[in-house]
Amino acid sequence: MLYLLYQFSDQLGALNVFRYLTFRTGGAVMTALLVAFVFGPRIIRWLRSRQSNGQPIRADGPESHLLTKQGTPTMGGVMILLGVAVATLLWADLSNGYVWAVLLVTLGYGGLGFADDFLKVTRRHHAGLPGSSKLIGQFAIALIAGVWIVSLGDPAESTGLAFPFLKDLLLDLGWFYVAFAALVMVGASNAVNLTDGLDGLAIVPVIIAAAVFTLIAYLVGNAVFSNYLQIHHVPGTGELAVFCGALIGAGIGFLWFNAPPAMVFMGDTGSLAMGGALGAVSVVTKHEFVLAIVGGLFVLETVSVIVQVASFKLTGKRVFRMAPLHHHFEKKGWAEPTIVIRFWIIAMILALIGLSTLKLR
């Protein structure tokens, strides 16, 4: 919306700054942060008034959670979605189809998460939407977004799959790429959801991944930089830097209230939406495999669940004391802040490795 102000720069030269992605990305960060700070306390008060007992705590989870997390409201992801939506609509070029496709996934997954959280709270049970229903909804949204993204790109490259460290290879999957793209979005969404189990654990790695993809979106959308780095240029993806900036700002604002001890949990409303957003941005920028590196912490948490379930079904034995992985370390006696901060460090290291793929080709 504000992007259009540059058209009046001949009358007021200062308005020319609205042309620049860097300026608008910074504006999106600050706007989303401000929205979270202003509306966050009100949202938390509203959630508390509607959730007398807070988020239902699993009886089979770590025993300490029954004492430390009982009564904390959930669905705080509403705060994140509000910040992202307002900042993106305010600062992005709304004629860009990629912006709308990514917003579709973010808000669509946020809606699914909201329904899931609502059922948990009203039923006073940790089970919300049936898993099959949630997956069907996620894949439906992702497939629509996948077709949309492919239709916006160059027909010669839009269904191609790029690989990190390889500058020329673009494997054309045809329309199977849409199914692959949907799998990336759904997988990323559920991976973040599994990681969201301790105060501040999921939000900081999401902020770190969003920061990496802010840079990736900017570079991929710039013909000069993409040619210099020998990465595949996708015209129009630069506007997703503004979206990622909004995600960073909203995430930082939410962290203010989610820092231990958390005043609010993001719930599936936030975790499904943020994971889906990162997955959608990686698909548009053709850096799906880089997301697996940058978001390696989310992958690790997901793999720990898969290994635990497979091992128990096949052998009757558990590999970990509890899954996802962060609960394993809780069971080993690690303090919650220790687990959270060490996982943040891992996320930062993986982000640096992911960024290295931009040059090592």
Score class of each variant (00 low, 15 high):
Arg58Cys: 03
His233Arg: 09
Val38Ala: 02
Leu143Ser: 01
Ala277Trp: 02
Trp344Phe: 09
Leu173Ile: 06
Glu63Phe: 01
Ile345Asn: 11
Phe225Met: 14
Leu129Phe: 09
Ala211Asn: 00
Asn193Trp: 13
Val29Gly: 06
Asp196Met: 13
Val234Met: 12
Ser151Thr: 02
Ala36Glu: 14
Ala241Ser: 15
His327Glu: 03
Asn258Pro: 05
Gly83Arg: 04
Asp117Ile: 00
Ala323Asn: 09
Leu33Asn: 03
Leu255Thr: 02
Val224Cys: 00
Pro56Trp: 07
Thr106Val: 00
Ser132Lys: 15
Leu201Ala: 01
Thr159Cys: 07
Trp256Leu: 12
Gly236Arg: 05
Asn222Met: 00
Arg19Phe: 10
Pro261Ser: 09
Met1Trp: 06
Arg123Pro: 01
Leu103Gly: 12
Val242Asn: 07
Val281Glu: 12
Cys244Gly: 03
Phe320Lys: 05
Ala217Trp: 13
Pro130Trp: 05
Val186Gln: 07
Glu239Ile: 02
Gly238Asn: 07
Thr22Tyr: 11
Gly61Met: 01
Phe298Pro: 05
Pro73Tyr: 08
Asn258Tyr: 05
Leu47Gly: 12
Gln138Met: 05
Ile248Ser: 10
Ala188Asn: 11
Lys167His: 13
Thr195Leu: 15
Val84Ser: 07
Leu4Thr: 04
Ile216Glu: 10
Val319Gln: 09
Leu201Met: 05
Ile208Pro: 03
Val78Asp: 01
Ile231Pro: 02
Asn53Phe: 11
Thr357Trp: 12
Ser133Asn: 08
Gln138Asp: 03
Val184Ser: 07
Ser64Asp: 06
Ile345Lys: 07
Ser304Arg: 13
Thr68Gly: 00
Gly236Tyr: 02
Leu219Ile: 09
Ile345Ser: 11
Tyr20Phe: 14
Val303Lys: 01
Gly97Glu: 03
Gly238Ala: 02
Glu288Cys: 02
Met322Tyr: 01
Phe165Gln: 14
Arg58Gly: 03
Ala259His: 10
Gly253Leu: 12
Pro73Thr: 06
Gly137Thr: 05
Phe8Asn: 13
Phe254Arg: 12
Leu112Asp: 08
Leu297His: 02
Ala28Asn: 09
Gly249Ser: 15
Val178Asn: 08
Ile231Gly: 06
Ala115Met: 15
Ala127Phe: 09
Gly187Ile: 11
Pro155Cys: 12
His126Ile: 09
Leu33Ser: 01
Gly295Lys: 14
Ala250Asp: 08
Ala262Asn: 05
Pro337Ile: 11
Asn258Gly: 08
Thr31Asp: 11
Ile207Thr: 06
Ser158Asn: 09
Gly296Gln: 07
Val319Gly: 01
Glu288Gly: 04
Tyr98His: 10
Leu135His: 02
